[in-house]
């Protein structure tokens, strides 16, 4: 399920505007900008529908032991890394889930196609794609959290390469361990950008309760 409010947020709409999205009191017909919001809403719904038709959400993950060594050093399944921010996130954890998720390559083609016709629609589709992968991650995160809780663990908020000082370079290690190319068709380019475009990798710390 793609959250329309998320889409507006990615498009830069401020929270006040989004809060009023479903309010019925918007009747300022003299303001032409206001009446155009209906058209935009139509475009967004269309983009959501076409994204839902094009997306093939897939994810792979594994559960691994880790060691938080202090001084920002952490032993992860692919080697030792230094990240103070990730250390804070993983405080108290001896295990992690590592996951990779993608909405698939067909969405990328859809985006390429729509760019030829309208940049406005492309910008909207871009936001819808971001919301789609976000919702996929939330769903996966929920499942993994429940799984952890059932085993007596608390799941920490997910953390991705590129956040804080957890360098994007870590993508290489994550891809080495999870091999998402084989299982979900997700690959890492030399620039450390993932292909397909709307994809996420992340670490979820598991703290024994």
């Amino acid at each position: 399920m793609i959250d329309e409010k998320e889409v507006y947020r990615y498009l830069g709409y401020n929270s006040g505007w989004i809060a009023g999205l479903n309010a019925e009191t918007k009747n300022d017909h003299d303001d032409p900008m206001d009446s155009s919001s209906e058209v935009i809403q139509g475009h967004i719904r269309e983009a959501v529908a076409s994204t839902e038709a094009a997306m093939h959400p897939k994810a792979c993950y594994g559960r691994f032991p880790i060691e938080v060594k202090g001084d920002g050093r952490i032993r992860l399944p692919y080697g030792e890394v230094v990240s103070h921010d990730l250390t804070r996130n993983l405080c108290g954890c001896k295990e992690i889930f590592l996951f990779a998720a993608t909405i698939g390559a067909e969405y990328d083609r859809l985006l390429r196609r729509i760019r030829l016709t309208s940049m406005a629609k492309a910008a909207i589709l871009q936001a819808v794609g971001a919301a789609a992968v976000e919702s996929l991650c939330n769903k996966l995160n929920d499942d993994l959290r429940k799984d952890a809780e059932a085993g007596g663990y608390k799941a920490h908020p997910r953390y991705s390469p590129g956040y804080g000082d957890y360098a994007l370079e870590n993508q290489k290690g994550i891809f080495g361990v999870l091999q998402p190319a084989r299982y979900i068709g997700l690959s890492l380019m030399d620039t450390l950008i993932m292909a397909p475009e709307k994809s996420v990798t992340a670490v979820i710390g598991l703290e024994r309760l």
Binding site: L11, S36, I40
Partner: peptide
């Protein structure tokens, strides 16, 4: 002034 957002800016541009 943040009264108009990206989609409309682009639609107008188009």
């Amino acid at each position: 002034e943040k009264r108009v957002f990206l989609p409309q800016l682009l639609m107008s541009a188009e």
